[in-house]
Amino acid sequence: MSSSLTLPADRTTERPRRLLLALGGALIVATYLFLVIVQPTEIAGGMGSAASLVSLFGFLGGGALLVGGILPMLTTSSLVIMPLGIALNIAIGQVAGSLGLQIYLDAIGTVLVAVLAGPAAGAATGALSNAVWGLFNPFALPFAAGAALIGLLAGLAAKHGAFRRVYLAPVAGLVVGAIGGLVAAPVAVFMFGAAGTFGTNAIIAVFRSMGDKLLVAATKQGLLSDSLDKIVVFVVVALIVYALPQRAVRQFPFARTHRVLGARSGQRAMTTAGAGSVR
């Protein structure tokens, strides 16, 4: 829709883009593995500055590389809803955070963009929304890579049909949330000593009083809160997109070609006149 008909498409930039994506992904994975495998002993004693530096640079740098690789390949229709997703994340996340809930609800916009515009747009929305949120709440900044991962996984889930039925959404949310919680925990521990809201810290305190290490306790809390949070978020997003008018969904090529919403994706009028998928 946004590709130019008069100007030649530039193929020369394809390779560095792939390289950026691969580098960004590799950096995030390497950072996570380093934090989990090498450092857990350190936090109890010296709480190494190296660990917090690695988590800051690894995850932020990886997120930046991913955004740099993703942005040039997005169409205008995806780009236009990214600010919308970012603003939704921040507006709803801010409210949930100030109420001291055990869940964050700061990924509704990311998942919405991922469902409508695909995994790449979702990942970029997640990373950028935490970067923009960092201007109002600096504590959101280091979690950019985790948010990007949520967007990517939500988009992949949508591509493979997790949003075609309402009961599939919470299952996908559970899986995505568990992975997101695993990734976010070391960031919280090494940057801020696992400080969060009163709700999340109460859960960590329970695990700590049973004698768990801080990283272990924060990971368990992450698994618990994030899965719960993403279940709610995925269900909310599924219900929102089901309520959208078809015209709004049909403007997104990703939602159309992958039939993200099943029969609601807006293809039935054109392709399946008698194919039996008319509800």
Partner: peptide, 30 residues
């Protein structure tokens, strides 16, 4: 849901209008 659903629908309608305007103004040209 009763708050977010109308919110998202309204914002998406705005976004699709913005999409057309940006397209008309050569947003995607290098």
């Amino acid at each position: 849901l009763t708050v977010t659903t109308p919110l998202v629908i309204g914002l998406l309608v705005d976004a699709s209008e913005r999409n057309r305007m940006l397209g008309a103004r050569g947003f995607s040209s290098p």
